[in-house]
Design a protein around this nucleic acid. Structure first.
Lengths: 145, 145
DNA sequence: ATAATATATGTGCAGAATGTCGATAACGGC
DNA sequence: GCCGTTATCGACATTCTGCACATATATTAT
């Protein structure tokens, strides 16, 4: 969320998108549910869930994976086969699978909360509760300056 | 998100529900769009959007309102009419109205990201990618102990 | 040879967001 | 005077996130 005077200035593309807290975690868990993989590969595959390339920081991915491992929700082994530096390959544990289920439940709840909010907004606006046009124009002028 | 060993222990009712960052802000803005009001009243009316009474701390509401005011998205005046302590009555500004619109756009995007994720999960599970029952039972035993 | 690039995994820090606890204060009823 | 309700706010701690940077190996280009 943009801060300071002139909130529009900080609405950079991709940044500050209203997001779900720690959303990367369930994404990683789902990817790992499809099969073991390593951080760098997961980083690429996160795009599938709407993480734009520019907006994902690799350190967040690695940090998240290590955190999951410290909670025994994934395990890791080193893979030195093939070229390039060694890769830490993660595998989902049964506990991690249950944890993913917990996330899914919470996210479904979040979706229903979100739906109700957006419906309430549309309902409210449908009734003609708009800010008068002349006031809006005034604001547009102030914001763009 | 539950931390530490045994993630289930910290899944207290209402707490740690996967949520949208700063979601209280658009809720307050929408409530104020329906008409000026004061913090204590808004605190009550937040229930409408799924904020359970036990999980909302009043200080969070007041902090959010003062933050909005510092960004000129709402204004406030003191109301000393009626009994009890004075109430700070907030009004949405045209800038605040625009800001609400920005939130709505972002939340719609969030909803579509969430939908895609949940669909991907269901799609994946539909194909029989379950953790074998005997392993699950094993986990259930470990978790409940 | 060596320089640059791609792959791969991290640490440290600052600032933002959130949670918890309690202080303050006015008013009404006893 | 004391207590419960209404009402607002400060202070502190913790958690989350993004940014900058550090490290190391293998491949390709010069």
């Amino acid at each position: 969320m943009p801060r300071g005077r002139g909130w529009r200035r900080r609405c950079r593309a991709g940044a500050w998108v209203q997001r779900i807290s720690r959303f990367m975690e369930p994404c990683l868990l789902l990817l790992l549910h499809r099969g073991g993989s390593h951080g760098y590969d997961l980083l690429e595959r996160l795009k599938e869930f709407g993480f734009a390339e520019e907006t994902v920081d690799s350190s967040v991915v690695y940090r998240s994976l290590r955190d999951l491992e410290s909670r025994a929700l994934v395990t890791s082994t080193w893979d030195t086969e093939g070229g390039g530096p060694a890769r830490r390959v993660y595998q989902l544990t049964p506990e991690g699978d249950q944890y993913l289920g917990w996330w899914i439940g919470g996210l479904r709840e979040t979706r229903s909360v979100l739906d109700r909010f957006l419906q309430a907004y549309e309902e409210h606006m449908k009734l003609g509760n708009h800010v008068p046009d002349e006031r809006m124009a005034e604001v547009d002028h102030r914001i763009s300056s």
